[in-house]
C-alpha cells in the first residue's frame, strides 16, 4: 500500500520562469483532481460549517459531541489503535525475524509476496473468511469445542465484536507493517551492531541504544499509517457486523444511504472529523518517515 517513497520535505514551489503554454499539458490532471477529489471534499468541509440555509455555524461541529457520534468516534479510535498497535508489534517481530533472524533465505520472498496479497485482501471477502474461521460454526470455533473442549463463545467472544473486528483488521495490518518496515530493518547496518559490540555493548544494549532509536520513527510512523488505514475502512466492518457496530465509517455509510442523523450538515461534520483524524495521522507519518530516512541515508 503506502510503501511508496514520500518526498515529504516538499520542495518550495519555484517561481515559474516562463510558463508559456507548457502548463496546458497538466490541465486534464488538475481538472480531474478538482472535480473528483478536491471539490467534493471541500464541499463537505464547507458544509460542516453551514446550517440548512447555508449560513455559517459551528453548531454541526458542536453536535459531534452527541453521545452516539462521540461514542462512534471512541469505538473507531479504540479499534484503530488496537489493530494498529498489535499489527505494528507483530509485524515488527515478523519483519525482524525474516530480516535479522537468520532464517532460510526462501522465507523472505515468500513472506513478502504473501504480505503483498494479504495487505490488499480486505473488505467483504476478508470478513467472510473470519466468519468462517471464528464465527459460531467456524472451523476454529468447532475444533476448539470438539477437540480441546473449549467453548470460545462461552467466554463472551464474538467475531462480530470489538475483539473480532480487531483480530480481522490485523489480517491486513500486519502485512502492511511487514512491507513498510522491512526496508527500514534492512537499513540497520551490520557495522552498527559490530561497532557497539566491540565498544563493550551486549546485544540488548545495542538494541536499546542504537537499533530501537533508529527504527523508532519508522515504527511509530507506520503505526500511524495503520491507524488511518483501519480508521477509514468500511467494507470489512460492514461485512462482519452489518450495521450493528457503531463506528464512524459505518455511521457515515448509513448517513450516506439515508440521512440517519436527520441533518445533512451534521453528516458533513462527521466526514470532516474523519478527514482531520486520518489527515493528522498521515501527516505525522510523513514527518516521522522523513526523520527516519534522514538517519538511514
Amino acid at each position: 500500500m503506502a510503501q511508496m517513497q514520500l518526498d515529504a520535505a516538499a520542495l518550495p514551489l519555484a517561481q515559474p520562469r516562463r510558463m508559456s503554454f507548457a502548463f496546458l499539458g497538466v490541465v486534464p490532471f488538475f481538472v480531474f483532481a478538482v472535480m473528483f477529489l478536491l471539490w467534493p471534499t471541500a464541499f463537505l468541509m464547507v458544509g460542516s460549517f453551514q446550517d440548512a440555509d447555508g449560513h455559517f455555524t459551528l453548531e454541526n461541529i458542536y453536535r459531534l459531541s452527541e453521545p452516539t457520534i462521540l461514542n462512534a468516534y471512541k469505538i473507531s479510535i479504540e479499534i484503530s489503535v488496537a489493530s494498529a498497535l498489535l499489527g505494528a508489534i507483530f509485524g515488527f517481530f515478523l519483519a525482524a525475524a525474516v530480516v535479522l533472524g537468520g532464517l532460510p533465505r526462501w522465507l523472505r520472498p515468500t513472506l513478502m509476496t504473501f504480505c503483498g496479497v494479504a495487505s490488499n485482501f480486505a473488505g467483504l471477502p476478508l470478513a467472510f473468511a473470519f466468519l468462517a474461521t471464528l464465527g459460531r460454526t467456524g472451523l476454529v470455533t468447532l475444533l476448539l469445542r470438539d477437540f480441546v473442549g473449549f467453548d470460545l463463545y462461552a467466554t463472551g467472544f464474538n467475531v462480530l465484536s470489538f475483539t473480532g473486528l480487531t483480530l480481522t483488521y490485523l489480517y491486513f495490518q500486519i502485512p502492511l507493517m511487514v512491507l513498510i518496515l522491512t526496508p527500514a530493518l534492512d537499513g540497520l547496518k551490520r557495522e552498527w551492531r559490530e561497532a557497539a559490540e566491540v565498544l563493550g555493548a551486549t546485544s540488548w544494549q545495542y538494541w536499546r541504544h542504537v537499533a530501537i532509536p533508529v527504527l523508532w520513527p519508522s515504527f511509530l510512523g507506520t503505526t500511524l499509517l495503520l491507524f488511518a488505514n483501519s480508521f477509514g475502512a468500511v467494507a470489512t466492518a460492514y461485512g462482519l457486523t452489518g450495521s450493528s457496530l457503531n463506528i464512524v465509517p459505518i455511521l457515515l455509510y448509513a448517513q450516506s444511504r439515508g440521512d440517519v442523523l436527520h441533518n445533512p450538515n451534521l453528516g458533513y461534520a462527521l466526514a470532516l472529523g474523519m478527514i482531520v483524524i486520518t489527515g493528522l495521522s498521515n501527516g505525522a507519518y510523513i514527518w516521522l518517515r522523513a526523520r527516519g530516512e534522514r538517519w538511514l541515508k
Partner: peptide, 18 residues
C-alpha cells in the same frame, strides 16, 4: 497522495452531494 488520507467513504459521500 490525498486519496490515502481522505477515506473512500468520505470521497463518495462528497460525490453523492456534488
Amino acid at each position: 497522495l490525498l486519496p490515502l488520507v481522505i477515506p473512500a467513504i468520505v470521497i463518495v459521500f462528497g460525490y453523492l452531494h456534488t
